[in-house]
Each structure stands twice: as structure tokens, then as C-alpha cells.
């Protein structure tokens, strides 16, 4: 079952077409990485899902209900963490969560229980300082707590890790990983290592369109292009190796960087055999031969080319 379905969504600001006929869906229980360059339309899409922006065309459905701009009932399914969450600085984290809970219409007891549980989860329990004194990482964590307060079916996080230091990033990712299974998460970012760490589904946004989407494994498999890195002990060895006719005849692309060579091919096994037999023939002992895993970064750079 899909928690979120977007069909033929378009949005333009004046003449500027930001989202162009976008369609994709997010299955229940997944952590969906929404990847795109800065300004590719990630935040715009999220705001339309929340009913904060009016789409120019197309439909959005959350849990089978259509999103309407302005008065949005669908927001009861959604928890939202904005890219830079802003709170009332004169309140404490505890008071802010109480305010959120009361607005959502939770019972007093639920609010109390959830507050204690969530502040513990994000590590802000025993903090009685006003939000105005919080660091960015603390605000981001409070943001997750308020987004999870009403146990939403869908958690939307807009670049939750982009402005944080490595420790802050790890904390946020760990919290997101703990809600896996209970809540579906959409997580926009341009930090690909974060996506690789926790997402199981991804969608790549480019020029207002989803140009690639699916599960992480599927995508990696589909775009599988094996590459092999060889490090030589000196440049002389490298050149001798590259000039060998068998290597020149290999159907592959080659990149060289001083004493390292990266060879790419669709047929890994055959390539490896030829590389090794060639090395024995030329009497070259390499420092290292390594089969490289396909990374999301290479994939991203390839599809947005």
C-alpha cells in the first residue's frame, strides 16, 4: 500500500516551472530518500504535500485522501520537520510539545506520556532552558520530537541533516532509524552518504522531474557497472600495462590518476581474468587490485548529467 501518491504534479512560480509533471509514490513503512541538487524543487514538493503551497496542476494523495490547499485534513497523518525549524523562543521544549499536543487535540494524558517518551528519544529530557538558547542540532531534534508527537503515519523531513556537524547528523539519522517500521519517512537531502545509511527507497529529482526511483537495491543493481581499481608501484609499470594490446582491446572505459587506474566494464569476470593474465605476462606486481562497489554518488552524478 502506498502512503503517498503524487500524480502529474506541476508547480510554477510566474514563468519559472519548478516542478514539471512529477509522479511517484512512497510505499508504507519505507524510508524514502528524496534526492536532488539545491533548488531542484524538493522543498516546494514537500510544501505542496503539506498543503502549504498550491499546485499548478496534478494531484497528491496521502493515505488515500486527496490533499487540498489551505484547510488540510490530511495533515493529521503527517508529521513535518522543516529545513530550519522555528519555534517560539520564549518557551521550553516541554512547553512547546504541550502546545503542539493541545493543538492536535491529544488528550492530556497522551500528551504527558508522549512528551516524556519523545524528549527522551531525542535526548532533550531534563532540559529546562528556553528554546532561544538551543543550538541548531538541538532545535533539529526538538523538530523531530514535535513532528512525531501525534504518531503520524508519514514523517516528512526537509534536509534534516544538511546544516549539522557529523555528530549532530549521526544523532538525527539514528533517531530516524529508530522509527523505521512504525512510521513511513520521506527524507530530502543532497548528502548521499546519509541516504545510503538509512534509506531503502530513493527518488532522484532533477529539473522538476523524478528521473529515477525505486528501492535502493533495485537501482544499484540496474545501474550496476563494475569497476576495478588497480594501483601500481610506479608509473613505468602503469604505462606498460596500459599499452598492452589486450588491455587496449578491452571494452571498457579507463580513468587514470598517477599510479592508479580505474577500469569499468559490464563483464567483470572476463575483465578481471584478462587483467591478471596480462600482469603475469608482463611480470608486474600491483600494490592493489580492488573491485569497487557502485556508489550512490557515482550513480547520482551519472543520472543528472
Amino acid at each position: 500500500m502506498n502512503i503517498l501518491t503524487i500524480e502529474n504534479l506541476s508547480k510554477s512560480f510566474g514563468d519559472n516551472l519548478v516542478i514539471d509533471q512529477m509522479s511517484f509514490s512512497v510505499p508504507k513503512g519505507s524510508i524514502f530518500g528524496f534526492i536532488g541538487k539545491n533548488g531542484s524543487g524538493k522543498t516546494t514538493t514537500m510544501k505542496m504535500i503539506l498543503g502549504l503551497l498550491k499546485p499548478s496542476r496534478g494531484t497528491i494523495e496521502v493515505c488515500g485522501e486527496r490533499v487540498k490547499y489551505g484547510q488540510t485534513d490530511t495533515n493529521r497523518f503527517i508529521g513535518y520537520l522543516p529545513d530550519v525549524p522555528e519555534f517560539y523562543n520564549y518557551m521550553t521544549a516541554y512547553e512547546y510539545l504541550k502546545l503542539c499536543g493541545e493543538i492536535t487535540g491529544l488528550s492530556k494524558k497522551t500528551i504527558k506520556d508522549r512528551r516524556i517518551e519523545l524528549l527522551g528519544l531525542v535526548g532533550l529530557d531534563h532540559n529546562n532552558k528556553r528554546i532561544g538558547t538551543f543550538s541548531r542540532g538541538m532545535k533539529q531534534r526538538l523538530g523531530i520530537a514535535q513532528a512525531l508527537l501525534h504518531e503520524p503515519k508519514l514523517l516528512i523531513c526537509d534536509e534534516p541533516t544538511s546544516a549539522l556537524d557529523p555528530i549532530g547528523r549521526k544523532e538525527i539519522l539514528d533517531i530516524l532509524a529508530t522509527v523505521r517500521g512504525k512510521t513511513t519517512v520521506i527524507f530530502s537531502t543532497h548528502i548521499l552518504s546519509d541516504v545510503e545509511r538509512i534509506c531503502d527507497h530513493i527518488g532522484i529529482l532533477h529539473h522538476g522531474k523524478i528521473i529515477l526511483s525505486g528501492t535502493m537495491q533495485e537501482i544499484k543493481k540496474y545501474y550496476h557497472q563494475d569497476s576495478c581499481l588497480i594501483e601500481f608501484s610506479n608509473i613505468h609499470d602503469r604505462d606498460r600495462f596500459l599499452q598492452a594490446t589486450t588491455i587496449e582491446n578491452l571494452e571498457s572505459s579507463t580513468t587514470t590518476d598517477r599510479i592508479c587506474v580505474i577500469l569499468k566494464s559490464q563483464a567483470l569476470k572476463r575483465m578481471m581474468q584478462e587483467i591478471m593474465s596480462e600482469m603475469i605476462r608482463l611480470d608486474i606486481v600491483p600494490v592493489k587490485i580492488e573491485i569497487l562497489d557502485p556508489t550512490l554518488e557515482n550513480l547520482f552524478l551519472e543520472v543528472v548529467k
Binding site: L52, Y80, F87, I103, T104
Partner: peptide, 9 residues
């Protein structure tokens, strides 16, 4: 600051 309040319903 209203974004959170409005999206909370």
C-alpha cells in the same frame, strides 16, 4: 513559526 502550528491542524 506558524508553519508548525498550521501543519499540526
Amino acid at each position: 513559526t506558524l508553519v508548525n502550528m498550521i501543519t499540526k491542524g
